[in-house]
């Protein structure tokens, strides 16, 4: 991990957005990814809530990394994560009850989102607070982008709107399946397919460039 902590903060931030994107590369935290992405607004709210919990808990975990004995570290991480989830739960209720209803049980379920515990265990507990926070923020933004990619496709096809703005007029025929759970699987599958295709194409280009050289 020493090489990671010496790289720049920007690299730490970009790590979660592209190379280790939690949704499209690591395929972690699928429960909220599939469940709340029926609209772009829901997706962004969920992403922001998760980012907040991720950044705060990674900061705290990193700050305490030298005092927490390893025997009780998981218990400590879970308590810290649960704390910030509870705080987010109250904050969302205070901002908008409609949003709170739309996200439903998935706010509380951020506690068991494996991205957060995974980051706390694999990264924050071994790095300085600043590095851990940048990495966590990058992961959170990457997660938000992933959710938004799903949420916008599902909202456009499922309701004909994007961020609540009608795109096709009143006569749009909604694709009911897109706002139902199977739609989440279809859209996620399509995105994963796209990224796999992209990765393979890039690999081929690199190989061809190598052959020419």
């Amino acid at each position: 991990m020493s090489d990671v902590s010496t790289t720049g903060h920007w690299d730490q931030f970009m790590e979660g957005i592209w190379r280790q994107n939690p949704v499209f590369v690591m395929v972690l935290g699928m429960c909220p990814t599939l469940a709340v992405t029926v609209s772009a607004v829901n997706a962004i709210s969920m992403g922001v809530a998760t980012t907040f919990v991720l950044a705060c808990s990674c900061l705290l975990v990193s700050m305490m990394r030298n005092v927490v004995p390893k025997e009780v570290r998981i218990a400590t991480y879970i308590v810290i994560i649960a704390t910030f989830v509870t705080a987010v739960d109250y904050i969302i209720q205070a901002i908008s009850l409609a949003l709170y209803d739309a996200l439903g049980a998935f706010i509380q379920l951020i506690v068991v989102n494996c991205i957060i515990l995974g980051r706390a265990e694999a990264h924050a507990s071994k790095n300085r607070p600043a590095v851990a926070t940048y990495n966590a923020l990058g992961m959170g933004v990457g997660f938000t982008i992933g959710l938004l990619a799903l949420g916008s496709v599902r909202e456009v096809l499922g309701a004909g709107t994007l961020f609540g703005v009608s795109l096709f007029g009143a006569n749009f025929q909604p694709w009911v399946i897109m706002v139902l759970p199977p739609g989440g699987f279809f859209v996620l599958g399509a995105w994963l397919l796209f990224f796999a295709w992209h990765a393979r194409r890039k690999e081929r280009q690199l190989r061809e460039a190598g052959q020419h050289a």
Binding site: L60, M64, V67, V68, P69, V72, A75, T76, V79, I80, A82, T83, F84, T86, A87
Partner: peptide, 14 residues
Amino acid sequence: RTLGLVSAICGLII
């Protein structure tokens, strides 16, 4: 001691 400290901090935040 650690668990107690963590719980106290978390309790305050909540």
